[in-house]
Write a protein that binds this DNA or RNA. Structure first.
Lengths: 244, 244
DNA sequence: ACAAAAGTGTTTGGAGTACACCCATGG
DNA sequence: CCATGGGTGTACTCCAAACACTTTTGT
């Protein structure tokens, strides 16, 4: 083969080395649910510039880990949880978004059951915040949170993901409360039940709630086969056009 | 104020400098439309590793440009077009996705009218490819293309974006052909027209097609106020729940 | 006259929405 | 018996889908 004018990757790397000067991070919007409120797990910023403000859990991507593995690592390190639901949402890369230097961050949200990891967050400066009450945050993290919440709101309408926030067994009332917390609006009970029924996501356990101060409701669980945990790129169905 | 244990950004930068070792690029899936086929603008790979394969138009993000500005720059440099429609889609960052080193790329798609920039692509190795006929590409660009196409397919169902691919004036037949090319399926003419009518996107120009070898159709244009060009984060309406 | 596409309407089914009453349990 | 939520059905409207004939123009 002659000299074709093509360059090898090795040569290209040399010619571009001044560009390898941007850090890449991931930020995780870790959603939880408790007492009828959607929560997000935050940490007190350790940067002087943002003293007193809260920030998302994130970390720089290390040179030898895949981008999509980084948020799993962050989750594991911070909450001890594996097999969480994670979805990549959006990248944020304004020049001055981070005071330490040029950091492009890729935002993910995850859904975790608060009860299942009460343990790991006693010592550090981690706290669950009510999403509805959050105002300013460190960096551009409020924007990231809003973007992820919006994505979650769209997601839950069509996909059975909220079950990652609930215990194994739950009543329809609990499920409805959760949807209301995520969507930020009240839903009609009868229509909600019809709609959930149509989705065919649930199995009736033939068990009842206990220790409730009123008539107990039936308990359900997510139908097996509808994997709770999954990543983003799993559209197997064709596009629903509504245009055919 | 005492020493609070907080670090300044400058100090943090020093402690993390070994991480500023990943390059960030953007890759643009530039869609066009011609002869009833959805096209994508590609360039012959200049890397020996991918000799003979085609790749998306992309570039490294420079240290002093905002992430979302980078794809505009790429578009401008490659096609001479400003004010194109651009949407950020997804980030790809597997460790070995790029032979030159660690490169995390953020994928965007854009919609351009092929006719409006015929000029700039004579010299270089740029060509419009039929999306439906593309198989292997350089890097992970086939995956990126597929992801962007999927996003485009979802987008066009609800948002008036396809008009960026059409001339100012068009017939409903042309519009339907375009939707069919994007969605990869045939649509019923009567239902399609009803649906488009419901969307209320178009203005009837009271003009007719000319020089067609059959009965001419009426011409329409996009209603003004429905800006053709826009970026991603412009959801003003609340979530449509279908659950209230 | 023929070819090619424009233009148009009806019927059916499914799903969203609004809405009100009785039931079961704990206190 | 009261409070609290559980559980249910109907009527209406809107939209998607399937489907066929007549009209207009160029050749």
């Amino acid at each position: 083969m002659q000299n074709t004018g093509l360059k090898t990757a090795a040569i290209e790397k040399i010619s571009h080395k001044e560009y390898f000067n941007i850090a890449v991070s991931v930020d995780c919007v870790i959603f939880g649910y408790e007492e009828k409120q959607l929560k997000v797990l935050l940490i007190k910023s350790d940067l002087k510039e943002f003293e007193g403000l809260w920030s998302l859990l994130g970390d720089l991507v290390t040179p030898n880990e895949n981008l999509d593995d980084a948020p799993y690592r962050v989750l594991l390190e911070r909450t001890g949880l594996k097999d969480v639901y994670l979805e990549q949402v959006h990248s944020f890369g304004d020049v001055h978004r981070h005071p330490s230097g040029r950091v492009v961050t890729i935002a993910y949200y995850s859904l975790v059951n608060i009860k299942s990891h009460k343990l790991n967050l006693t010592d550090n400066e981690l706290h669950w915040h009510n999403v509805a009450e959050l105002n300013s945050m460190a960096f551009d993290h409020k924007l990231i949170l809003d973007t992820c919440l919006q994505r979650l709101q769209e997601k839950v309408l069509e996909h059975p993901v909220v079950f990652n926030l609930l215990p194994e067994k739950f009543s329809l009332r609990e499920l409805q409360d959760l949807y209301q917390a995520i969507l930020g609006q009240e839903l009609d009970r009868r229509n909600f039940r019809k709609r959930i029924n149509l989705k065919n996501w649930l199995v009736d356990l033939n068990e009842m709630e206990e220790d409730v101060p009123h008539r107990p409701g039936k308990l359900y669980k997510l139908k097996s086969g509808l994997k709770k945990i999954s990543t983003d790129l799993n559209r197997s169905k064709p596009v629903k056009t509504h245009l055919v």
